[in-house]
Amino acid sequence: MNGYLGVDVGSVSTNIVFMDEGGVVFEAIYLRTLGQPIATVQKGLRELGGRLPAGTKIKGVGATGSGRNLIGVIIGADAVKNEITSHAVATSQVVPGVQTILEIGGQDSKIIILRNGVVSDFAMNTVCAAGTGSFLDQQAARLNISIEEFGEIALRAASPVRIAGRCAVFAESDMIHKQQMGCSLADILAGLCEALVRNYLNNVGKGKEILAPVVFQGGVAANVGMIRAFEKELGLPVKVPPYFNVMGAVGAALLSREAVARKGPSCFKGFRVSEMDFRTGSFECSGCSNLCEVIEIKEEGDTIARWGDRCGKWSSVVRREEKIS
């Protein structure tokens, strides 16, 4: 079987998908990044390599997510693209005619508006991460419930309490206040979902025209409480696609298919990447008072990439076959 790999290295999770040449997802792996993107991708590839039938040929690899440049050089990606483009490409394929994508991940949330199959507008959260997955995670941990049961509990709410959603600090102190007043856990969690949705629509969705079909994806879309809160606030049905939590990776795989068709054979280094020795090191450049932290990536002892310098003194030393955009 021939197919394409998509790797999405986010702040919280790392997702890898394998799709066949027709764009059908065969395997999807969802792992926590745990602050170690390289080791996590290696682990994921090892797992995926074991799951795929013998003789599978990887025709192209795409990388996305905030760790895309790092992972791109590690695995030899053909396409390295930002999350917005990847998500839009994936969703248009899975839900043809989609006009609005709501995406909430670990550290960022975004809204993508599509018209006639083309991205016409997008926005990402600007200066604050209130209302993203990390905050939900943290609150679930504080209340000693698992994030998986969060949504189910929220659905049981009789009358959701009102919680300030603008700032995570305000939200938390509101929640504690309500909890000490004796409100039920379900009401508090449902109130939190509503607050986050309000915050998202005001802060990220600011003034954008939200038209159906609306698709909700990203890790937080697993939370049925959030889906319900969005539907209530928008007055529109909200669709959660299969593979909602790996859509970025699906998009990256689709983009790699495009890239390979354009530029020829894949640069993928193969599943042996999971057994190779990668080391990253950093040093502070003392060339000027910017004191840039320069990151160096070594594969089996050879430096394959450097970045982090503002002036290009270090990164331009390493010759790269294709400029990473």
Partner: peptide
């Protein structure tokens, strides 16, 4: 990410 997506 934002700039790249915007230019795209």
């Amino acid at each position: 990410t934002r700039l790249e997506a915007f230019v795209d």
